[in-house]
Amino acid sequence: MKILVAERLKELMKESGVTQYALAKAIGMRQSNVSEWLSQKKEPSIKSLWLLADFFDVDIDFLIGRKNY
């Protein structure tokens, strides 16, 4: 199974009109973390996935590609 975090995150950010900086600030992370997730250099931790899911009001399963909406 392919993990789709970067693709889903880009999609959600575009739909919401949120920048990397704004997202990072909202979830208490550095912009470099968000950048690394988007470029697939790193995967978010479980804690980060929870924060992202809460921020975008989606399931973690959606973020990682196990569910579609």
Results as ranks from 00 to 15, higher is better:
V58F: 07
A53H: 05
V34H: 01
S39K: 09
F56L: 04
L12C: 01
L63Q: 06
K14A: 05
D61L: 15
G17E: 04
I3M: 15
L4M: 07
I27Y: 03
I3G: 05
S32W: 05
R66M: 12
K47N: 15
K47G: 13
A22P: 00
S48P: 08
K67P: 05
E43R: 04
V18G: 00
D61K: 14
I3L: 09
K41S: 13
Q40P: 11
F62A: 15
K42F: 14
A53C: 07
V5C: 03
N33D: 14
L63S: 05
V5S: 03
A6T: 05
K67Y: 07
K10I: 06
W50R: 09
Q40E: 13
E15K: 05
K42M: 13
A24I: 04
F62T: 07
R66K: 13
M1D: 12
S16A: 05
L52I: 04
S39F: 09
L52G: 03
A26P: 00
K47D: 14
K14H: 06
L63E: 02
Q20Y: 03
K25Y: 08
S48C: 07
G17M: 06
E15Q: 03
I46D: 10
S35R: 06
K42S: 12
E15F: 02
A26N: 02
S48N: 11
K25Q: 13
A22C: 04
L4C: 03
R8K: 11
Y69S: 15
E36D: 12
S16N: 05
I46N: 10
M1K: 08
S35Q: 11
L51E: 10
F56C: 03
L52P: 01
A53P: 06
M29W: 10
K2H: 14
L52C: 03
R30V: 12
M1C: 11
R66F: 06
M13K: 00
Y69Q: 15
N33R: 08
K10G: 01
L38Q: 03
F56I: 06
E15V: 03
G17K: 06
M1Y: 09
W50M: 13
D61M: 15
E11H: 00
S39V: 05
P44H: 07
T19K: 00
K67D: 12
W37R: 01
K47W: 14
Y21D: 10
D59K: 14
A6L: 07
A26H: 03
K2M: 11
L4F: 06
K14R: 12
Y21M: 11
S45H: 14
S16W: 07
D57N: 15
I60S: 03
L23Y: 01
Q40N: 13
R66L: 13
A22M: 05
L4W: 10
D59V: 13
A26E: 08
F55C: 08
L4R: 05
A26I: 11
K14P: 01
R8A: 06
G17V: 09
R8L: 10
I46F: 05
W37G: 01
L12Q: 01
G28R: 09
D57K: 15
